[in-house]
């Protein structure tokens, strides 16, 4: 896959996070973790999962939904679904 798409995936994921968690994209980095900010609660998490499913056209597994505890973890999980990041 060309580098441009790889970069786009990161941006796309950031946008999904910022939309689903209703937060400023600026504060999203690899360390951003579930329950570390008030906005990322269980309700927002489910919105996030739904949005990721939708936008990347996949269906995250049970373990992956439970495991997706940070932004970097989300990228790691998504690579299992053939979505690549830098």
């Amino acid at each position: 896959m060309c580098k441009g798409v790889v970069k786009l995936n990161e941006q796309k994921l950031k946008l999904i996070f910022s939309e689903a968690l209703e937060i400023d994209p600026e504060i999203i980095n690899d360390e951003l973790a579930y329950n570390s900010i008030a906005e990322w609660d269980s309700i927002a998490h489910m919105a996030l999962v739904a949005e990721i499913d939708d936008q990347f056209d996949i269906m995250l597994d049970t373990d992956d939904v439970l495991d997706m505890s940070s932004f970097s973890k989300a990228k790691e999980i998504l690579t299992k679904y053939d979505i690549t990041f830098e």
Partner: peptide, 9 residues
């Protein structure tokens, strides 16, 4: 913990 976290289960 919420039911959607691994530590809950």
């Amino acid at each position: 913990e919420s039911i959607i976290s691994k530590s809950f289960w």
